[in-house]
Nucleic acid binder design. Structure first.
Lengths: 251, 251
DNA sequence: ATAACAAATATTGTATACATATAATAGCAA
DNA sequence: TTGCTATTATATGTATACAATATTTGTTAT
């Protein structure tokens, strides 16, 4: 595993210079800005490690050693440890006290469980969105839908994945339930780690388009129950493809 | 705020004695046991603080200061900091970098959001339970239901709350989705912090009994859709009572 | 009195030191 | 060899030291 060039992070710490005593208003303003940008090292390390785990750069089962990570990142053990505590609570790593920390494995069972839940939550999101979406959000939704269809037509896979994610995010935002958004985000982390793409290659593009169409129409027509039903169906289908992809790969 | 008698925790650290070189098998066995029981200080601190926050012993908005907490608990800042990182990820505290850590506020909006989600998840739990429950789990469920009804008949409020929680837990266990269990647990923390009891005093006992009856019958009959519907209704009603309790209190 | 600045203080952020436990290795007896 | 103990190395757990920032207090000039 390669965590990037050594001492990469140290700069961001040393950059912070000591106080200048008499300063202009402009300097104060600049200072305030740089403060707003300030992130503790533990945050940087946390995000870095999370990214590395989710993308698979650090593989499941691999051990995370504090000293080694600290040296690679050019920081001390303290921020690394604090970052690891958060990863632990997110379920990305497993701690065995006094033994060490290991990147947790994601089984197909875990993914099935998560998607089972996501079926419900996506249904809820669409239901609430149909109830609460505002006009400008609806416009945004329709626009994103068109963009997605264009990506589908162009067979631009990475574009499809991106636009699809954005589309779902717009719906969740429109549902006006921040807790729901956070919950989904946390859940999907597990799925992302599982190597199959969320938008399966076998999920026929034409079907995908139709499914979205139905959901969006229902939301537009403020038909809550229909929106819920179609959204649930949509994820249910995606789930089936992911599972069958997995089985295919297992052969 | 009083976090208990000073130096309370230090014992658990000092208890761990240095190694005895030649030891019997029995001693090894004892050692293994004490190891399995071993919890890092950060865990103890974490659980302690979480409990204190959930019960309201530490109030929303209150500041958590590392040195003070460490002194009160008789530990150093390190385990306290690591515990706080976890509380932060759970949303129980809010961190402002370089400023401090504050116990997060729980608004009625948050509670509404959580319960909105819980309606869906409880429905999902009952649905899956109806599909997957095993005979012994069903027996356990029926037994708990009787116990709950007894508590209701006796007007034993704390008994009702306890049995109700246990009943719901049995259903979720039967759903065979561990992720779902963890998710619900995390979510309900927020509601518990909100001072209204989850089983509202205004939720008529007779209704409560009927609602449970319907859910359990549906599960028993393996009627998934009905189980889902009744479970959703049940939480929806509870949600209404909690919200109206809140409004009443606000007067 | 009050605003602005400066010094002092308290608190968080980070690094390091020390203690203890686990793992790995080597030596030794049966 | 095999199994045990002793030894060493390495990693984690905890405490403390140091650095930088925020906050409070105090002082001075207006």
């Amino acid at each position: 595993m390669n965590c990037g060039s050594k001492k990469l992070l140290r700069m961001s710490y040393l950059q912070r210079q000591s106080r200048i005593n008499t300063r202009s208003d402009l300097m104060k303003e600049l200072d305030k800005l740089s403060l707003e940008n300030y992130k503790p090292l533990r945050e940087i390390v946390f995000e870095h490690l999370r990214e590395a785990i989710i993308t698979g750069e650090i593989e499941p089962g691999e051990r995370l050693m504090e000293i080694q990570l600290a040296e690679n990142l050019g920081v001390s053990r303290t921020p690394v440890r604090e970052a690891i505590r958060k990863l632990e609570l997110e379920g990305l790593v497993i701690m065995e006290p006094r033994k060490g920390v290991y990147v947790s494995e994601v089984s197909i069972t875990d993914v099935k469980e998560v998607l089972e839940i996501r079926v419900s939550l996506e249904g809820l999101g669409a239901y609430l969105a149909a109830e609460r979406i505002k006009d400008d959000e609806l416009q945004e939704l329709l626009k994103k839908h068109e963009e997605l269809n264009k990506s589908i037509k162009d067979r631009d896979v990475s574009g499809i994945v991106r636009k699809d994610t954005e589309l779902h995010n717009i719906i969740f935002k429109a549902a006006k339930n921040d807790t729901l958004v956070d919950l989904i985000d946390g859940l999907m982390e597990q799925v992302k780690r599982f190597r199959v793409s969320y938008v399966s290659g076998h999920h026929k593009s034409s079907d995908l388009a139709k499914e979205h169409e139905k959901i969006i129409c229902a939301i537009k027509n403020r038909n809550k129950e229909a929106a819920k039903k179609y959204a649930e169906e949509h994820i249910e289908i995606a789930k089936k493809y992911i599972v069958s992809d997995y089985n295919r790969e297992k052969l």
